[in-house]
Design a protein around this nucleic acid. Structure first.
Length: 556
RNA sequence: GCGCCCGUAGCUCAGCUGGAUAGAGCAACGGACUUCUAAUCCGUAGGCCGCAGGUUCGAAUCCUGCCGGGCGUACCA
């Protein structure tokens, strides 16, 4: 509908130019928007104001010239007016909105799909928590955001892959092994001084106990270093299994689990380092090797090999991101916690050095989550305690509520997550508000069997059937969905879907309150039309919730 | 110190590429169920868009400075 209008406006402007009314032929692409106020029509354009400078004319004069030259052979418009400083407002024939119903009925689950991605390959890497402890709520938000982004991009015609990067190498894995080993020693009754920088959580004790109880290894006869390594492997694998289970329960699925260690095993890290030493991007200073990131936009150069010979995380990250692009991705999106903020510039520099466009690598920084109960903050220590893990939260409030709330704000905004609120089955809880629409409509549909419904009804007939204001508003909201999806994908902002769904839900509830779908003294045609209308609402609610990874229940 | 993000209604937050009288949810107040799920709806109230300049037909939006808050700034991960 917008395209048609834009076309009409452009044609009118050129016609006005040919007639000499508009001096310049520089006609910009008309921007059309839905005015905030219904009194300003269905669509409006500010093109006259935009052109004012070039045309050297008053905006309202330009608007007049355009309106005078509008051709509307199919009678789309019932009224056109010039308002304010030079807006042109368009009032559409109401029956035009009915076309959206047919469109959604035809497209079903595919309504909202677009091809703006044009088949470009995108990788979304998210969660990627170190396998040194269970996922906490912060990871949950990252998981919800990453998963929704992937779904959005997929819906917009990108070829998407979801990846989890496992930091299964390096010092912290050894620390994990040491922690586990020491707890094991404690169980054996040895006096142990448990260091501060070891992992304190009770889950480590549980692991040690399992090693003992299930007799998984003969640690006692091993050299201490071997025992620590064995513990490290065992603990990391077990914790990773736990992470996988937590994600599964949260309905998050990754396509690829990528091991950091594999980059060492196949010499990728080594090769990358050697390569950049040759190109001069890596140099030696103070016994360490530095990557020249400052020349590429970072604040300073960064160490990749420490003077003790050990590589830093940055070294493997360079190899990792090179690997990503080598796999043919046009865009690489990393979802990180906000505490990794300072890492972006150096990673972009590395991507630049690899010879890729810095803009092909994007980082979505997800701010932290404040867990509350009845408005009171809960302590978020790494030590075992009350509700801090993702699993606990999902257990308590359910995956639907958790995901919806995680996505209910811009990812860059800190998020308060109130456990009690998330569980409430009242209007304070936004999840239910949206899901309720779906359930209500399912209920109507199942009751519809007992009603006389016109069967030879045809949406192609251009007669006006749905003419109530609540119906028109609903259809307008439905029509907006595809561009909401596109906008959310373009800006990588899934929260837009949440806001949209609340609007659509609100429009539906208003309609529902004022008008009956199934009513005895109503024409079968109107019944059928309304039935189709609510079915399309259900469809769009379903499609939107699917993007968020939230279920659409048939009854509540 | 430097860099990034943020400051919008009592609270939590939207606000697209600058557009008309700045929006929503919650909380508050007042109404609406003999009807397809009241987990709902309708109405009222609530604002110096942190402050001060600048850009222009027009600024919550763009630029500069200041104030206030968060984060980052490792031969850590």
């Amino acid at each position: 509908m917008k395209e048609i209008l834009a076309e009409m406006i452009t044609r009118a402007a050129f016609k006005a130019h040919e007639q000499g009314v508009l001096p310049s032929d520089a006609i910009p692409q008309p921007g059309l928007e839905e005015p905030k106020q219904e009194a300003h029509g269905d669509f409006s354009t500010n093109i006259a104001m935009v052109m004012a400078k070039v045309q050297k004319m008053a905006p309202r004069k330009i608007a007049e010239a355009i309106v005078d030259n509008l051709e509307d052979p199919e009678n789309f418009l019932v009224k056109t007016e010039i308002a304010g400083p030079g807006f042109i407002n368009f009032y559409l024939r109401p029956s035009l909105w009915q076309r959206v119903v047919k469109g959604i009925l035809d497209k079903g689950d595919e309504y909202g799909r677009s091809q703006i991605g044009a088949g470009q390959k995108v990788q979304v890497e998210f969660v990627s928590a170190n396998p040194t402890g269970p996922l906490h709520v912060g990871h949950g938000r990252g998981a919800a955001v990453g998963d929704a982004l992937a779904a959005l991009l997929d819906m917009c015609g990108f070829e998407v892959e979801r990846e989890y990067y496992i930091n299964d190498s390096g010092r912290q894995i050894r620390t994990l092994g040491l922690s586990c080993w020491l707890r094991y020693c404690e169980l054996k009754g040895k006096e142990v001084d448990f260091p501060q920088d070891c992992y304190q959580g009770d889950y480590i004790k549980d692991l040690a106990k399992r090693i003992q109880d299930e007799n998984l290894a003969d640690l006692d006869s091993m050299q201490e270093e071997d025992a620590v390594l064995w513990c490290a492997r065992f603990a990391a694998n077990d914790i990773l299994d736990g992470i996988k289970k937590d994600l599964k329960d949260f309905r998050v699925v990754h396509d690829v689990w990528f091991s950091e260690q594999s980059l060492y095993d196949d010499n990728s890290v080594q090769n990358a380092l050697e390569h950049f030493e040759k190109t001069g991007d890596i140099y030696e200073k103070d016994g360490a090797k530095w990557f020249k990131t400052e020349d590429r936009g970072d604040e300073k150069d960064r160490v990749v090999v420490r003077n003790n010979g050990l590589t830093t995380y940055f070294a493997s990250d360079i190899a990792y991101h090179k690997n990503k692009f080598d796999r043919g991705f046009d865009r690489v999106i990393d979802v990180w916690g906000a505490d990794h903020h300072g890492y972006i510039a150096r990673m972009k520099a590395a991507v630049d050095a690899v010879g890729r466009n810095k803009d092909a690598f994007e980082v979505v920084l997800v701010k932290l989550v404040n867990l509350l109960r009845d408005g009171e903050p809960l302590a978020m220590t790494t030590r075992g305690g009350t509700f801090e893990t993702l699993a606990d939260v999902v257990n308590e409030v359910g995956a639907d509520a958790a995901r919806f709330i995680f996505l209910s704000r811009h990812y860059e905004s800190p998020l308060d997550f109130d456990l009690e609120l998330a569980k409430k089955q009242t209007n304070e809880n936004p999840v239910w508000y949206v899901q309720y629409v779906h359930a209500r409509i399912c209920s109507i549909e199942s009751k519809a069997k007992d009603f006389p419904v016109s069967l030879d009804f045809d949406w192609d007939r251009d007669e006006e059937i749905l003419k109530e204001i609540e119906e028109i508003r609903l259809m307008k909201a439905l029509a907006r969905y595809p561009e909401i999806v596109e906008g959310a994908a373009r800006t990588l902002e899934p929260h837009r879907i949440v806001f949209y769904l609340r609007e659509l839900a609100s429009a539906f509830h208003s309609f529902y309150h004022d008008h009956m779908v199934l009513k005895e003294d109503q024409t079968p045609v109107l019944t059928k039309a309304r039935l189709d209308l609510v079915t399309t609402v259900r469809q769009v609610i379903r499609n939107g919730l699917a993007l968020l990874g939230v279920s659409a229940p048939e009854s509540m």
